[in-house]
């Protein structure tokens, strides 16, 4: 999915930059009496209308795919409590005491709906799940005083890594965790 977004960005950027280059070249070639475009307002309206329609299509196509609405009507078969802290992830099937946090190995089933209940015991962190190809598959913030519920079904078995993506101090880049999906 990330590659698709990169291609989309590259295509749109190349197109828009080409328009700028084309317009610049037309100016270089123009003579003293050339006056540029006529009936600009009509063209502008078309431009805005097309832009509006494209964005409206994007909006209606993407909003239902927002993580808040995914698996909303299903009941999770497993829930995992996650407490982030400088610079560890504590994960457990049972409640975690923030003053004396402990972890246990987490094992999930393929296509099993799991709910991660994510919070923090100190500063804001991110609970970002990476697959075996080292790509982000899901994430939510770990914020002190709040619990973010992330629901997900892992389609492939393997070891999934967890990294913090919200800057949380000098050990930010060493913060990590993992769980397995069988």
């Amino acid at each position: 999915m990330q590659s698709l977004l990169l291609y989309l960005f590259l295509i749109l950027t190349v197109v828009s930059t080409s328009v700028f280059i084309y317009v610049y070249r037309s100016s270089i070639k123009a003579g003293d009496k050339d006056g540029g475009l006529t009936n600009v307002l009509t063209k502008r309206m078309w431009f805005i209308l097309i832009l509006f329609v494209v964005l409206a299509i994007f909006f209606s196509a993407t909003v239902p795919k927002s993580p808040y609405f995914m698996f909303k009507d299903e009941i999770p078969s497993k829930s995992v409590n996650v407490t982030a802290g400088q610079y560890f992830f504590y994960m457990s099937y049972s409640a975690i005491n923030p003053d004396a946090p402990t972890s246990e190995p987490i094992e999930l089933g393929v296509n099993e709906l799991v709910e991660f209940r994510v919070t923090s015991r100190d500063v804001t962190h991110t609970f970002a799940v990476y697959d075996e190809n080292n790509q982000v598959v899901a994430q939510t913030q770990a914020m002190p005083g709040y619990v973010n519920n992330l629901r997900w079904k892992f389609e492939k078995p393997g070891t999934y890594k967890i990294f913090c993506l919200e800057y949380c101090g000098a050990g930010h880049h060493i913060m990590r965790g993992s769980f397995t999906v069988k």
Binding site: V23, S26, A30, G31, D34, G36, L37, V40, K43
Partner: peptide, 9 residues
């Protein structure tokens, strides 16, 4: 873009 297109600048 309109100000530049086909216009001597």
């Amino acid at each position: 873009l309109v100000a530049v297109y086909g216009t001597k600048i």
